[in-house]
Design a protein around this nucleic acid. Structure first.
Lengths: 150, 150
DNA sequence: CTCTACAGTTACTTTTGGAAACTAGTCACT
DNA sequence: AGTGACTAGTTTCCAAAAGTAACTGTAGAG
């Protein structure tokens, strides 16, 4: 059997989404430098809700990329850590993230020039739309005149 | 200035989502082995809708990771290709995807054993819930008796 | 005796994603 | 002049996903 993420029915698709998804990627990245408990992880991955963190961790645990260990000491601690496979994926993710961080200055610049160009284009389009509205109005006036004559 | 994807307000967060998001990652991956036109890309990334592909490509273009070139030949073709930064990110993504593909057998196995364990746990919980329902019923009966006596 | 921390779950709301129809511009055929 | 085809999208509408906030339940601190 051959796995291909570009095929819509391949079982690897949902796994890729778990790994590269919004919170999954950050959870894996956070666990890369050591095991963490639920709330510690929540503090580390800023902005994640309890619900989504629980959901992402459950998905990663199901995929065998994260190990969940309940410590029955008080107050009921749960430690999350990476499995060997999870560790490799986390490393690759962190590598990507590191490169992204290095490229941020250029990316921000690209975004700004894109937004500026778009603003210009929108303004230009508003002008032509206005012109079209004018010609439409003129056409309507002509039609009215024709109608009045009839 | 220091960029950190783990911070909720960092500008790198949305960019990471563009790159690792569901369709963004596959679009970058597909463009890694040569430029493609819109519909060719759509055929390559199976299951993507026109709307989402257009949206993802616009985001990647804005981030300066993908270049969009309109060819004014008939019938109006648009070619998408990777910028140097996009190319590096695509390579890293494909590396991650390749490793994921190699790990799929183990992952599928993990999913199956997880699902099996969950099914067991759910069954067990249904049992205790049933027991609780019984005791609740008994308690209600006691309360009714007491009420009838009063 | 209230307040906090632990690890979640549940109910409700808002945002997003996907399917299908529609737009726009150009040619080719009839 | 009208019809249809091909391109690359946009729009519309509804279901699915994500986010918000409140609740569960135990126990230690102040």
């Amino acid at each position: 059997m051959e796995y291909d993420v570009f095929s819509s029915t391949c079982p690897s698709r949902p796994v890729l989404e778990d790994v590269t998804g919004r919170w999954g990627a950050l959870a894996l990245g956070a666990l890369a430098d050591g095991p963490l408990r639920f709330n510690a992880l929540r503090r580390h991955v800023q902005g994640v809700s309890q619900k989504m963190l629980a959901q992402s961790l459950q998905a990663l645990e199901r995929d065998g990329l994260v190990k969940r260990e309940v410590q029955s000491t008080f107050p009921l601690q749960v430690e999350y850590s990476l499995t060997p496979t999870g560790e490799v994926l986390a490393t690759k993710l962190l590598d990507l993230i590191a490169y992204l961080r290095g490229s941020m200055p250029g990316i921000v610049e690209a975004q700004q020039s894109y937004d500026k160009a778009r603003a210009q284009a929108d303004k230009a389009r508003a002008q032509t739309d206005k012109a079209h509205a004018q010609t439409d109005k003129a056409r309507a006036a002509q039609a009215d005149k024709a109608h009045a004559q009839a």
